[in-house]
């Protein structure tokens, strides 16, 4: 299976054609994830008393929105064949900087959001430049900057939260559309559309994929791989900052512990969503829809298992087991389709 967004540069797209539907969609991770989401949603609705309640759908959608953004912040770097372990630290640093600016200077929330995204972009650029200039793998660089960014934030803020923020921020986090829909989920979907457009229709997106698929070949074909990698990390920083901003709306405050110690709480959702969605850790292939669906599945499983009262400590084990089962089922499905020559 080869997602459309990973096709070589210049290759005609076949989106919308019957063959794409069969080979690219039915045979892809996305279809499997949709099936799993539908199956588990039905199961949880039937087996628990509150899964489909408006309050639960609202909180679930809100969690999904944040997890999707966290997944995207890692996905855009994985595309280039790299990693960004500092996504949590960047997200927290960005919102703390924005919180400080809004509380100290009385900035309105749009300017606060701009500060947040700019700080995220700047920290992402620091990561990218450090990786490109040193030639050291992004794993090592971002492991180091994770501590540097977070430590600097704790030193500067003395671990004190900023909560005197414009009321619109908390109101946005609590807003319920039609009684059950969180706008945070809509933000995540909108971001997915932008990213899908980036990788599918822009030369920048294609350069990112090409640099991840084969840096040497990309270099030979005239792509400035170094700058592209820096671009990927800037984008990752912006998305991490946006995820942080969404968490700030959810908490109603910018708090240093929102992503845990060193921002490590974000690492699991950051990796799970893109990997489940079909983005290869080796780079060069991306699935924006898959990442979105992967994050939705993980959030839904966690929520449903908690409602089933399987025991909080068993949730992690069940989650791992179900994810493994999901991956194996998906593998079997694709083999079955291949045997019947339905998919490539």
């Amino acid at each position: 299976m080869q997602p459309a967004s990973s096709l070589p540069l210049g290759q005609p797209r076949s989106a919308g054609s019957p063959s794409f539907v069969r080979a690219g969609f039915l045979g892809g991770n996305e279809f499997g994830l949709i099936v799993l989401i539908v199956v588990f949603a039905t199961l949880f609705t039937l087996a628990t008393k509150g899964f489909a309640s408006p309050f639960n759908l609202f909180t679930l959608g809100r969690t999904m929105g944040i997890d999707i953004l966290i997944g995207f912040s890692m996905m855009v770097v994985i595309v280039s064949g790299g990693l960004n372990l500092a996504v949590g630290a960047i997200g927290v640093c960005a919102v703390m900087a924005a919180g400080w600016a809004m509380e100290t200077f009385g900035l309105p929330w749009p300017l606060g959001l701009a500060v947040c995204l700019l700080v995220g972009a700047a920290l992402g650029a620091v990561n990218g430049e450090a990786i490109v200039r040193s030639g050291v793998h992004s794993f090592i660089i971002t492991l180091a900057t994770m501590s540097i960014f977070f430590g600097g934030m704790v030193f500067l803020s003395r671990a004190e939260a900023f909560r005197e923020l414009p009321p619109a921020i908390a109101a946005f986090g609590k807003l319920r559309l039609m009684g059950f829909l969180s706008p945070l989920l809509l933000v995540a979907v909108a971001t997915a559309l932008v990213l899908g457009w980036l990788y599918r229709f822009t030369s920048l997106g294609r350069r990112m994929l090409a640099a991840g698929a084969s840096p040497k070949a990309a270099e030979v074909s005239g792509i400035r791989v170094d700058r592209t990698i820096v671009g990927c990390h800037i984008l990752s920083g912006v998305l991490a900052a946006l995820a942080g901003a969404m968490l700030t709306a959810r908490h109603g405050a910018a708090i240093p512990s929102m992503a845990g110690h060193l921002g490590q709480d974000w690492l699991l959702p950051a990796f799970l969503a893109p990997v489940l969605g079909g983005t290869l850790l080796t780079g060069g292939k991306v699935s924006v829809l898959g990442t979105l669906l992967g994050a939705m599945l993980v959030s839904m499983l966690t929520n449903g298992l908690l409602l089933l009262r399987v025991g909080e400590f068993w949730v992690q084990a069940f989650l791992g087991l179900l994810l493994l089962t999901a991956v194996l089922l998906d593998l079997g499905r694709r083999r079955l389709l291949a045997r019947h020559r339905i998919a490539v």
């Binding site: 008393k49 509150g50 309050f55 639960n56 908490h251 929102m258 709480d265 908690l306 409602l307």
Partner: peptide
């Protein structure tokens, strides 16, 4: 984790 506690609390209300 704050997010895990929040998810649990939201779930407990639903329960």
């Amino acid at each position: 984790e704050l997010s895990q506690q929040n998810q649990l609390l939201e779930s407990l209300v639903t329960q």
